[in-house]
């Protein structure tokens, strides 16, 4: 398929369907993440980059026979591998009998958070989540380093740049009503992750989506009045530092790195506080990285459009 717009749309649909599949498998948190990250923001970012390049792929003469062969082999290997795997839903499958029972039975007493996924993600395997946050930060650094905005373009932006969709009155009015709700929902997801599905990743993405919607309708220069690129750059780093900082404080208080038990006199309270703080760190980094990526892409469009 050479129409890249269709490709992007199809990949969005693919994500949405897999999100429904995850929901069907009772993995609500995963479904939520897939829907907000896979179907939501990544489709948006791909569309933003599509705006920079042309919609249609150039014709290539290359016939990817080898690639096709590799893909078929990999697929065959995967099917071969799944033939022996434990049947879906078997109670005595290794995944259900080895590590999981402790997570399910003890986490309420050890951590005191009703959502087990959050316990595993932010405490039992909290260090992985720190790593994931750092991955997001690294991606942000990559975009910031490669898509530098020149001083000239910055000067250009001082003049008011109208958004492409400035004229869409219905969209503007609906968006004005929606944006506060989106931001509120983001905060709900952020701080309610202990009790229901949600957490920093989803919340950050939803928050960023709200701001991006605003930027698309009201223009880059208007949204930059509040969300200055330089400030957001600092926020991308601040989230990681908050997360890591909690870990270091735990160490200073006598525990191991990220052992929230030591944050307060009562281990369960400590766990609560720790999880809240690290989720906040995740949320800050994710939201600001998503925004900065979108802003950088939009800068590029500005540059192409208003260059004399």
């Amino acid at each position: 398929m050479s129409d890249l717009f269709a490709v992007v749309m199809l990949s969005g649909i693919y994500s949405l369907i897999s999100a429904s599949l995850f929901l069907d498998l009772d993995a609500v948190d995963v479904a939520f993440t897939e829907a907000s990250v896979g179907a939501g923001i990544s489709t948006l970012l791909m569309l933003a980059s599509l705006k920079l390049v042309s919609r249609y792929q150039k014709k290539t003469r290359y016939k990817p026979i080898l690639a096709f062969f590799v893909v078929v082999t990999t697929g065959a290997m995967l099917i071969y591998g799944t033939l022996d795997m434990p049947h879906f839903g078997t109670a005595d499958a290794p995944v259900h009998t080895h590590v999981a029972p402790r997570y399910l039975n003890e986490s309420m007493g050890e951590i005191g958070v009703p959502n087990v996924v959050t316990s595993v993600l932010a405490s039992y395997r909290g260090y992985d989540t720190l790593g994931e946050t750092l991955v997001i930060f690294t991606a942000g650094i990559g975009v910031m380093a490669l898509l530098m905005v020149s001083k000239q373009t910055k000067q250009e932006s001082k003049k008011l740049i109208p958004a492409d969709m400035q004229q869409q009155i219905i969209l503007r009015i609906v968006a004005k009503m929606m944006i506060p709700l989106i931001l509120m929902f983001a905060l709900y997801v952020q701080f309610h992750g202990d009790y229901g599905p949600g957490g920093g990743f989803q919340a950050g993405v939803i928050f960023a989506a709200g701001i991006i919607l605003y930027t698309m309708l009201f223009g880059l220069s208007t949204s930059q009045e509040v969300f200055k690129a330089t400030t957001i750059e600092l926020f991308t780093a601040a989230g990681v530092l908050l997360y890591g900082g909690v870990g270091v404080v735990c160490m200073l208080l006598g525990g191991n790195f990220l052992d929230y038990d030591f944050l307060k006199h009562d281990p369960v309270h400590g766990q609560h506080l720790g999880i809240l703080l690290v989720e906040l760190g995740v949320g800050i980094t994710v939201a600001s990285v998503m925004m900065i990526i979108f802003f950088k892409f939009t800068w590029r469009t500005v540059k192409h459009k208003y260059k004399k």
Partner: peptide, 13 residues
């Protein structure tokens, strides 16, 4: 690991 890990975002500041 965490010395370089935390130093990296600190560079931005």
């Amino acid at each position: 690991v965490i010395i370089p890990l935390l130093a990296a975002p600190f560079c931005i500041f």
